[in-house]
Amino acid sequence: MEVEKGKTAKYLRDKQGVSEQVKENLKAFTQIKKRILDALKESDMTILQLSQKLEMPTHEVMYNLLSMVKFGWVETGEIDDMDEYYTYKLKQ
């Protein structure tokens, strides 16, 4: 069967579907991303501050936040006076 270029994802989706786990993972990441971005709209924050504000374990904030830095939504700010923790801010 000839499938039109640029529309092949629909072909495979119709053919094999998408697992519930994959959909759940996307939903979870989208929610975390929104919560982190909303929090950073208020002020620049460290991972510890974000963890407290979002009531999320620090390692989960770390993983998702640094992924968001990689994806270009967040950037690294200044380090604190003790040279221990960086702040993170929305990418302009």
Partner: peptide
């Protein structure tokens, strides 16, 4: 493919139409 939602966003963004789920 194990983690792809097959949403097609990559295909729509690709300027050379090189993505091919077939």
């Amino acid at each position: 493919i194990e983690n792809c939602t097959l949403c097609g966003a990559c295909e729509r963004a690709c300027p050379t139409n090189c993505i091919d789920f077939t």
